[in-house]
Design a protein around this nucleic acid. Structure first.
Lengths: 256, 256
DNA sequence: TTGCGAAACCAATTGCAAAATGGTTCACGA
DNA sequence: TCGTGAACCATTTTGCAATTGGTTTCGCAA
């Protein structure tokens, strides 16, 4: 903008604008000739050409990629979500917060849309969860996961199901598993079983509001036990201690 | 299980189990020798070997991939989400349903966590949306998108932000754009502006419940106009016509 | 000294062919 | 009938050369 270009760069820039005007007519993702060729065609050095290209790139008229080429238009955005990056960029509290946003809604939709087959399966899984409450952690984990996913499937929304799976997959990450193993070894399993049962009962009764509320209460319980676990482990002792809950929590959610 | 194996296959199976026991000690994702080599080492034909491998694969002890090899353990799950497949497997109503699950929560969290800089930006974007209400569709679209995303950012949850971006990106798909262009060309823009304003006011006032509610009402409005548009276009005329709303809606949501 | 052009080199990407490997078919023979 | 060996098919990896943008160096001229 402010920096005035040299004579040859300015000439190249004007030539390029003309070329872009031609190319943009037929196809917006056209590829420009390589720099070496362009510099010969325009009759200017490669350095001067590149300065002109930098201007066009800054303007968003073109985008360049080493080893690939120079293209008209804006760079196409990536068509996939990287779970690794996502996993390393979040934390357990964020996940619980997201679950609290998504899963109660899934339970509500499940109450409205679950087929009779779905209902049978849910009932079966809730019983399995209950009977495995005294078993080893792995099987408890397994049945619990299957239970929550069955609800997500019954909701009949493929997009929300993908969101659920993303969260689930991040939770499977070895880094998080250790934390969950700690949490699971604590009491509270019985409470979870009761809460699961209440969710299923509401869904079977086609009571959407009750299902949403039951799931929310269940997840709040899980979140609180997680929170307790994390604050304990970061400061070994000291119970009954207010303050120091930086920001990732502090929601004061009145349970809708 | 039930099918008894032939002598040589059974021999190969026992040999392989021994090999797996060795390999699983040092590294769970070890690669087995290629089938041709293995069949020579064990001294059995390739066909017999493959039947033994099939058993192990069915048991989940190994997994195989053509052109790659045979490996110990279970197949690693994919570490990315394909937006193309997701886009082609969903529909506008599903997206609106998902938005209704996620975005009101984002507005609530934004009210609790937005920085002062965020608030300024939101206010600015809401005004821009308002002033562009009479402009061309592209700019309206642009400011509206920026507004919703600013709220998602202000909520301070990277996971939910990704969910928002996924939905947003699917909506950018050329297939959906045509539909939205139709919707946008209809009246109702003024109403949207008012609703945006109400959301921002609630967030600025740090009123979480009001922000959630305002966003929900806004999205309900959008959803209903979408629904109207789709039922109209599928059956050219006929207003005031009950029935025929198969299932993707029928929520009867009493607004929390 | 400064700026330009030419050349050389670096780094990322693509394309292609060959090799490796699991999947499949077929003829032969015990 | 069933296993063996061989051949062939389909997918994936690997190595290498070519392409291309990114950077540095050198020489030359204004």
């Amino acid at each position: 903008m402010s920096e005035p270009l040299s004579d040859s760069s300015d000439f190249a820039l004007r030539q390029l604008r003309g070329l872009l005007a031609q190319l943009s007519d037929h196809g917006s993702d056209a590829q420009l000739p390589p720099e070496r060729t362009l510099s010969l065609q325009i009759g200017v050095g490669r350095r001067a050409l590149r300065r002109a290209l930098e201007v066009l790139e800054a303007e968003g008229r073109i985008w360049r990629r080493q080893g690939k080429g120079t293209f008209v238009g804006s760079e196409p955005q990536r068509k996939e979500v990287d779970l690794e990056a996502l996993s390393s960029g979040t934390n357990p509290l964020e996940i619980m917060e997201a679950r609290l946003e998504v899963e109660p809604g899934l339970a509500r939709l499940a109450a409205l849309r679950a087929s009779n087959g779905d209902l049978e399966r849910l009932d079966h899984l809730a019983r399995k969860t209950a009977s495995s409450a005294d078993g080893d952690m792995d099987s408890r984990e397994l049945w619990d996961g299957a239970f929550h996913r069955a609800i997500a499937e019954s909701a009949g929304n493929s997009l929300l199901l993908v969101f659920f799976d993303i969260m689930n997959q991040i939770r499977q990450d070895p880094t998080w598993r250790r934390l969950r193993e700690q949490a699971r070894s604590r009491p509270g399993q019985r409470q979870y079983v009761d809460q699961h049962t209440r969710v299923v009962e509401a869904i079977v009764a086609r009571n959407a509001e009750a299902a949403e509320q039951a799931m929310r209460e269940h997840l709040e319980t899980v979140r609180e036990s997680l929170l307790r676990l994390m604050t304990r482990s970061s400061r070994p002792r000291q119970d009954n201690d207010p303050a120091d809950s930086p920001s990732p929590d502090g929601q004061g959610r009145p349970a809708a």
